[in-house]
């Protein structure tokens, strides 16, 4: 399995603050990868490092086997729809396509025209006059018609209303099916990613908490509910815990089955799984010390 993004101890520091630290990742090819985490977790930083928009402070990152933005060939292989889908307000839709055609050797004009036509965008309209959803679609069109091997999208639907959100993600999935793209998209909402992604990375407080195939993640995470208990057997990796006076709820990651009859074992949805990583138990260090 070849990696589209391979990071080793990757870190980025702004002044005194690490926006991303000790990030080691192998993202396989041919997947639609969701990068999820709260605002300010370092998602944009990771994506910016992957497209070479900025340079890492520590560690290394390789994208499709090359250093990000190291040359025109590397740039041609990676498409990027940046946060807020920037477009030139003064340029028309048609001029954006012309820009794409002039700056990208692999530009697929037929795909671009077809998409613009299907979306009902007038080539003569200025990008500054488009709605947020239309602008995002225009930016996506530029990213797709560039014919990259990997398309990276940073919070592409954050500013869109639910309908535009669905249309955007549908358009993205069609392109993935048609051009066999690898995709990495970030969001702070799991619901955006649930229907599109088959691989998930959870990033919290500048660190990767968990990364893996969505089906594997769902199969190995369990919610345990039972009478109050402050510790669990040693082979259980506790993701989060919460307690009331009488009852304890744990989210654990384990490959084995859970046999203890004291616990009621429940399955987790993707959203619950991500939330469990976003709100780790405050007492977890002590627990680990006991282990």
């Amino acid at each position: 399995m070849t990696a589209v993004i391979q990071a080793r101890g990757l870190g980025k520091k702004y002044g005194q603050r690490w926006a991303l630290s000790e990030c080691t990742l192998d993202i396989p090819a041919g997947r639609v990868v969701g990068l999820v985490g709260p605002n300010g977790a370092g998602k944009t930083t990771l994506l910016n490092l992957a497209v070479g928009q900025m340079q890492p402070t520590a560690g290394s990152i390789e994208v499709l086997g090359g250093r990000p933005a190291s040359g025109p060939e590397q740039l041609a292989k990676v498409g990027y729809v940046a946060q807020d889908a920037p477009t030139y307000a003064g340029l028309s839709v048609g001029e954006h396509l012309r820009l794409g055609a002039r700056l990208n050797p692999r530009w697929d004009d037929a795909v671009a025209r077809e998409r613009i036509g299907r979306l009902g965008l007038e080539p003569g309209h200025r990008a500054g006059k488009l709605s947020g959803g239309q602008r995002a679609q225009l930016a996506l069109t530029l990213g797709i018609a560039k014919r990259p091997e990997l398309l990276i999208l940073d919070e592409p639907v954050a500013a869109l209303d639910p309908l535009a959100r669905r249309e955007f993600l549908q358009g993205l999935m069609e392109a993935v099916a048609e051009h066999s793209l690898s995709v990495v998209l970030s969001s702070h909402l799991v619901s955006d990613l649930e229907r599109t992604c088959d691989y998930l990375i959870v990033l919290v407080e500048s660190r990767v908490q968990v990364a893996g195939d969505v089906d594997d993640l769902l199969a190995t995470h369990h919610r345990l509910t039972g009478p109050r208990k402050d510790t669990l057997p040693q082979d259980q990796h506790v993701v989060s815990e919460s307690h009331t006076d009488r009852q304890s709820t744990y989210v654990v990651r384990t490959d084995g089955r859970i046999h203890d009859p004291a616990w009621t074992v429940g399955q987790l949805g993707l959203e619950d799984l991500v939330l469990a990583y976003m709100t780790p138990a405050p007492s977890r260090p002590t627990l680990e010390a006991i282990r």
Binding site: V51, Q53, A69, G71, P72, E73, L75, A76, V78, G79, Y80, A82, Q83, D84, P86, T87, Y88, A89, L99, G100, L103, N104, P105, R106, A139, L142, K146
Partner: peptide, 17 residues
């Protein structure tokens, strides 16, 4: 200021050029 550098720098052309 408009963020379009993130658009144009991700076309197949280096910043230097």
């Amino acid at each position: 200021e408009t963020g379009t550098h993130r658009l144009v720098w991700n076309q197949s052309i280096t910043r230097t050029r």
